[in-house]
Amino acid sequence: MSSPATITRRQFGLGAAGLTSLLASGCLSDITDDGGHEHEHEDPPWEWGGLYELESGTYTYAYHEGPDPDMRLAVVPADEGGEHGLFHAGETATELFEKAEADTVLTDGDTTRPATDRLYRVDFESDGETMIELRVESDGYYSIVTEHVPAEFEAELRSETGGEMTTDVTELHSSHSHGEDDHGDDHDH
């Protein structure tokens, strides 16, 4: 299986084959000379986004111990798949992340649903796994956007049968560090 494409919000391009999607999205102001589609933005206030094609059902997002006690999270429905779908879901997530506080705190065993108007904060268990249930009402594309890279917590989205779900496309942003103290014991990602 090939790994998903990773894009950056600073330079997002959509080839000529995506022109139909581009016309439907209303993003005509950013068409490039070669028929591509470009967005120029500063790095958003989140670090990782992944787009999944999901069927209706219940999924489990499992986290293991990591460098932070909590993490902000948005689960945003996307109008389409691919880089363009992730980009626009990322714009919605950016608006949510720019809020001062998360709307809802999730702890081990809690349930969430995709929403364009809700930012979550996951409070991780101090020991072991934290499992958040994700209920999807209809088949489609959904973007999970997180404050930290899921690999920091060995996080994975699992189907009802326990299989790991893979992203169609991901987006990664600027690194940050987790400070242990003010004496240079940080580690970067």
Rank of each mutant, 00 (worst) to 15 (best):
M1T: 08
P4Y: 00
A5R: 11
A5Y: 05
Q11V: 04
G15D: 09
A17C: 08
G18N: 08
L19D: 08
S21K: 13
L22W: 06
L23N: 13
A24S: 08
A24N: 06
A24W: 11
A24P: 03
A24V: 08
S25V: 08
S25P: 07
C27R: 05
L28R: 01
D34M: 07
G35R: 11
G35K: 08
G35W: 14
G36K: 03
H37G: 15
E38F: 09
H39Q: 11
H39C: 04
E40F: 12
E40V: 04
E40I: 09
E40P: 02
D43L: 08
P44I: 00
P45F: 01
W46V: 05
E47P: 02
W48S: 00
G49V: 00
L51T: 00
L51E: 00
E55P: 02
S56T: 04
S56W: 01
T58F: 02
T60P: 02
T60S: 14
A62N: 10
D68K: 07
M71R: 03
R72H: 06
L73C: 08
A78I: 05
E80L: 15
H84W: 15
L86K: 01
F87P: 04
E91S: 12
T94S: 13
L96N: 01
L96V: 06
K99W: 10
A100S: 15
E101L: 14
T104E: 15
T107Y: 12
D110R: 14
T111Y: 08
T112V: 15
T112K: 04
R113K: 14
P114M: 04
A115W: 15
T116W: 12
L119F: 01
Y120D: 07
D123P: 06
S126K: 14
S126E: 15
T130E: 04
I132H: 00
I132T: 01
I132M: 11
I132G: 00
I132P: 09
L134Y: 03
L134D: 01
R135W: 03
R135T: 12
E137H: 07
S138L: 02
G140D: 07
Y142P: 06
Y142M: 14
Y142K: 02
T146W: 04
E147G: 06
V149Y: 10
A151Y: 03
E152Y: 09
E152C: 10
F153S: 00
S159E: 06
E160F: 01
T161W: 03
T161E: 12
E164H: 08
M165N: 05
T167C: 13
D168H: 04
V169I: 07
T170K: 00
E171Q: 15
L172C: 02
H173P: 09
S174M: 09
S174C: 06
S174I: 03
S175K: 12
S175N: 14
H178A: 09
E180Q: 12
H183Y: 14
D186G: 08
D186V: 13
H189E: 15
